[in-house]
């Protein structure tokens, strides 16, 4: 049975130094409250893998020194410009970057979901990505003739960390149409979830809810984090805090400014 954790910190116990941690894309409901808790916990040397891109979450974790290896298709603050801590770390060589392309990450997670060692994907041949990804191979399509195709090894994260609107007490989590959250959970050894609320009843009893529900079977722990995506948005529920994101982009442009940001918004806990 999934643990219904009394605090976010309790739920984050499986996220230890050096693990491979899967993070959702920037618009899928990003567990930002849990991310701040991870930084306070002082987790180090993460292999962070984004499905397939990230924004504030990856930038914060990198800036706070939690990340050793980053596997991603892109990290950017979107309308707020480049992700400053990611950019600085990439230029200084402070983190190792495994550059990918979005569908390659989707395919590699899907391989893990199926329990198969690799997945083929069209494209990529002729891209310099291949030269920097010795783990990606080109084979001849065994069912064709003179048809080279890339194969990608499965990505099996130790822990997927996600946020969703609600869970029930059996640990079933309603993700709606954010289906990549299910892919992350299927592919990962453990999944930790924060939710806006815990509801009575069983989400799998209602066929309308069940289709958008990630079964508790996959879940290690659930904790409540109200407004848990802030300052990012939760699709269908609340939008991003644009003023705050602008403030982040300004402060994080320098190391000193980023330190001030961490002190103000991460280490000094927000008032409940």
């Amino acid at each position: 049975m999934p643990l219904i954790a009394p605090t976010i910190e309790d739920a984050l116990a499986p996220i230890r130094d050096g693990i491979m941690l899967a993070a959702p894309r920037e618009v899928a409901g990003v567990p930002m409250e849990a991310t701040r808790a991870l930084i306070r916990k002082g987790v180090r040397n993460l292999h962070l893998v984004t499905l397939p891109t990230s924004s504030l979450q990856a930038d914060l974790l990198i800036g706070a020194g939690c990340v050793a290896v980053l596997e991603t298709s892109a990290v950017s603050l979107g309308e707020f410009g480049p992700a400053p801590r990611f950019t600085a770390a990439a230029k200084s060589g402070g983190i190792r970057i495994k550059d990918a392309t979005c569908p390659a990450l989707h395919a590699a997670f899907q391989a893990a979901e199926k329990g198969v060692p690799f997945m083929p994907l069209r494209g990529i041949i002729g891209s310099d990505l291949l030269a920097h990804r010795p783990d990606w191979r080109v084979i001849d399509n065994p069912f064709g003739a003179n048809d080279p195709i890339v194969v990608l090894p499965a990505i099996r994260p130790d822990v997927a960390l996600i946020h969703a609107h609600m869970a029930d007490r059996a640990g079933n989590v309603w993700i709606g149409r954010q289906r990549e959250l299910a892919t992350m959970a299927h592919a990962s050894a453990k999944t930790v979830v924060t939710v806006e609320k815990i509801v009575d009843g069983n989400l799998l009893d209602d066929p309308m809810a069940a289709a958008g529900t990630l079964p508790g079977f996959y879940i290690e722990a659930v904790a409540v984090a109200e407004n848990g995506c802030w300052p990012l948005g939760l699709p269908d529920h609340y939008g991003a805090d644009l003023a705050h994101l602008g403030e982040y982009a300004r402060l994080a442009a320098t190391t000193e400014g980023f330190t001030r940001y961490l002190e103000k918004y991460v280490h000094a806990r927000r008032a409940a």
């Binding site: 397939p52 892109a74 480049p82 230029k91 200084s92 390659a104 069209r122 494209g123 990505l129």
Partner: peptide, 21 residues
Amino acid sequence: DYDKPSVRFPGSFGSAHLYYV
């Protein structure tokens, strides 16, 4: 240099697949 670039952009996004198909 890939390991210590003078300029770093966000990343390739879906380009290495979509540009082909």
